[in-house]
Amino acid sequence: MTQVGEEWDEGGPERLYVLTGGRSGFDETGLDLVTLIVSRTPPQIGMQPEHESILRVCASPLSVVEISAHLKLPVSIVSVLLADLLAEERVEARAPAPALPDIDIIKAVIHGLQNL
């Protein structure tokens, strides 16, 4: 994955392919756009830079979609990168609130909005 040619199109699909080792994620990872990710370990020297960035921006909880926005990478790619970090137990994933109708969550949202 480190052998990359000189003429490299930064945003191109080839690069994304190399980044993820050819996998395309999201479905397999079970991550939602709003799954909150928190780092469990600090970034380490020699890590893939994208992994390093994720560990850094997730020092406090951050959703999958926010990671995507901050890293300027599509969610589909971020999900694959996160799958690596989850497998290595370098990050923790906090699943979204359970499916509705959950009256307690609805009430919490109403209360939160009223207090804005």
Partner: peptide
């Protein structure tokens, strides 16, 4: 190395960070 082209992400501003106690999220 791929790092040459990946723009290191600045991440959220510190005042935008969620508290460590944030455990779950919902969406509209």
């Amino acid at each position: 190395m791929a790092s040459r082209t990946f723009e290191t992400a600045a991440g959220p501003r510190s005042e935008d960070a969620l508290p460590a106690s944030a455990t779950s999220a919902v969406k509209i």
